Amino acid sequence: MDYDYDGGAGAALAFLLILLPLVLIFVLAGYIIGSFFLMKIFEKAGVQGKWRAWVPVYNWMVFAKLGDLSPWVMLGAFVASAILGQVPVLGWLLSLASLAALVLAGWRVGLKLDKEWYYLLLWLIPGVGGLIWLGILAFGQARWNPAIAPAPWAGNGFLADRTTWDGVPAQVSSGSAGYAGPPAGYTPPPAPGYTPPPAPGYAPPPAGSTPPPASPEPPAAPEPPASPDGPPAPPRP
């Protein structure tokens, strides 16, 4: 019997038995913290129902809608990556697709909370980078602002969000259902107290000057005499 082999296998098994619970604890803690941060972001965005932030996968679908990305694209990327993730090359490409969907939605959500794209570089920190990024969005002082420039994919294509979910507000910048732009030819009313600018070339009169009197209207033309009703009388002799 090879005691050295048995001893090495036993040590590896003991290491796994110790490591596995630690990994599960870290994964569970990361999920709880991430879901809590998502809940705070959803509250800022006006999403109804705190439970949405605690449902796996679905919470990121809601996040995708807030980021002007179709939630079904996010779901498809997650499912494809989970099922085909072990296939050589294809699994690596699918994992990149999931990351790309998260980056697109995260970029748009960051803009609506007054954060520029470079905050996404925090994701490069292994393990905790994404949580730090979510925490900055969740507890930042900026208010939710959906009225930003539309996403490049908002007009058409499979990335555009066209779904309508009760409890999840439609985003103005996504072009999704529930929002319609102003009609053609629409001119917004002026703000209270607004004075339109003068016409080009107009010079205001100097201070203290008297405006010229208005030109009198020309007199009306006299009306012609009325014609007699009967024939004229004959001349007298």
Rank of each mutant, 00 (worst) to 15 (best):
A199C: 09
A199D: 04
A199E: 00
A199M: 11
A199L: 15
A199K: 06
A199Q: 15
P200Y: 10
P200W: 03
P200S: 15
G201D: 07
G201V: 11
G201F: 06
G201A: 01
G201I: 05
G201N: 10
G201K: 02
G201E: 08
G201P: 00
G201T: 04
G201L: 08
Y202R: 07
Y202I: 05
Y202M: 12
A203M: 09
A203V: 12
P204L: 15
P204S: 12
P204H: 15
P204T: 05
P205E: 04
P205G: 01
P205W: 03
P205H: 02
P205L: 02
P206W: 00
P206M: 08
P206L: 04
P206D: 15
P206G: 14
P206Q: 12
P206K: 04
A207N: 09
A207V: 08
A207P: 14
A207D: 08
G208W: 01
G208H: 12
G208V: 11
G208E: 07
G208Q: 04
G208T: 02
G208L: 05
S209R: 01
S209M: 00
S209D: 03
S209F: 10
S209I: 06
S209N: 03
T210G: 12
T210K: 13
T210S: 06
T210V: 14
T210E: 04
T210Y: 10
T210L: 02
P211W: 10
P211L: 13
P211S: 14
P212A: 12
P212T: 03
P212R: 15
P212G: 10
P212D: 00
P212Y: 05
P212V: 04
P213L: 07
P213S: 01
P213A: 11
P213T: 14
P213I: 03
P213V: 10
A214N: 15
A214I: 11
A214M: 13
A214R: 13
A214S: 05
A214D: 13
S215L: 14
P216M: 01
P216R: 06
P216L: 04
P216S: 06
E217D: 09
E217R: 07
E217L: 09
E217N: 15
P218M: 01
P218A: 04
P218T: 11
P218D: 09
P218I: 08
P218Q: 14
P218H: 12
P219C: 02
P219E: 07
P219Q: 02
P219L: 00
P219K: 06
P219R: 06
P219W: 04
A220R: 09
A220C: 14
A220Q: 09
A220L: 13
A221P: 09
A221G: 02
P222N: 13
P222A: 06
P222Q: 13
P222D: 05
E223M: 06
P224L: 15
P224A: 14
P224K: 00
P225A: 08
P225C: 03
A226P: 01
A226S: 11
A226F: 00
A226D: 02
S227F: 07
S227C: 15
S227T: 09
S227N: 05
S227G: 08
S227H: 03
S227Y: 02
S227L: 07
P228Q: 04
P228T: 01
P228C: 01
P228L: 04
D229F: 10
D229C: 11
D229I: 03
D229N: 08
D229Q: 12
G230V: 00
G230L: 03
G230T: 00
G230S: 10
G230W: 04
G230A: 06
G230K: 02
G230E: 05
